[in-house]
Design a protein around this nucleic acid. Structure first.
Lengths: 149, 149
DNA sequence: GTCTTTGCAAATTGTTTGCAGAAAT
DNA sequence: ATTTCTGCAAACAATTTGCAAAGAC
């Protein structure tokens, strides 16, 4: 079993655990949507997830996908990104950074221990209580560098 | 004349200059919308700008605001932020960072020379040609820390 | 006069809501 | 049995488009 699969399995267990704690039902939709999001590293939009999961659950509605993803964000299982017009969902909840292509909107994860160690400004910055940070690099991805057109 | 006003005046001149270079007409709408955006440091949405400018140009349409802001982004006069559901526009085009309130969505600029000096990863990172970067801190702003409710 | 922009209305895209029936605990 | 979820239809929010008239150069 690959590393990524193991991670997904343990995250699915954690999900069921947390549902029980909070009294939330574990439904097929929730499990299937979570599997899909954990499987992907391309930060799918709600609609991407909908299209992908519909293959397995044909009666699934777009509304449910939105609602379930919202629940996952609330539970801290996935993260919502707003770098592009449609929100994208990120299975990676650890501190990490992003490369965003300014032409096609593609978002790629960047793990970088050096960046992670940016000192979190000592607690209050302009009255804010800082909880997280991440660095966003923007530029042109390799696909978008090609086309002369 | 205050510092900010001087900046706005020179930016308005730069705008007219660039329009001439590119053969783009300088219209009342464009000048008025640009004045409004340069006046504000609160990253207004297209709709905020529309509401504000409508006081001076009552016949202005929302469509025009969207189109004009798009043109400004294209010309490099302002920057578009997508931290919240509706896009916000930022008059500050120099390298800077943001504090984003995770409750109310407010975005505050952060100037920090130390952060600016993060070494831009040497040219190609995962095939990307990096052009810019910025650090985004998220947390709870002072207004949102109060309400017990 | 020519070319681009503007305003309007309508279409699109992304997301949310109300409600009745279905599923999970 | 109780509570929460799901699907549907419809509402809503943000943004975009087609087209004729108006404005800038």
């Amino acid at each position: 079993m690959r590393r990524a699969d193991e991670m997904a399995v343990s995250r699915l267990r954690a999900f069921e655990e947390r549902c029980r704690q909070k009294g939330l039902p574990v439904t097929v939709q929730r499990r299937t949507i979570l599997e899909e999001v954990l499987r992907r590293d391309d930060h799918p939009t709600a609609d991407d997830v909908y299209e992908a999961v519909r293959a397995r659950l044909p009666q699934l509605s777009r509304t449910t996908v939105y609602r379930v993803l919202e629940t996952f964000v609330y539970m801290g299982l996935v993260r919502r990104l707003r770098q592009t017009k449609a929100a994208r969902f990120d299975r990676n909840i650890d501190r990490h950074h992003h490369l965003v292509c300014s032409r096609c909107g593609k978002v790629i994860d960047l793990e970088d221990r050096t960046l992670d160690q940016l000192p979190l400004p000592k607690r209050k910055l302009q009255g804010f209580i800082i909880e997280e940070f991440s660095v966003r690099f923007s530029g042109t991805c390799s696909d978008c560098q090609q086309p002369k057109e």
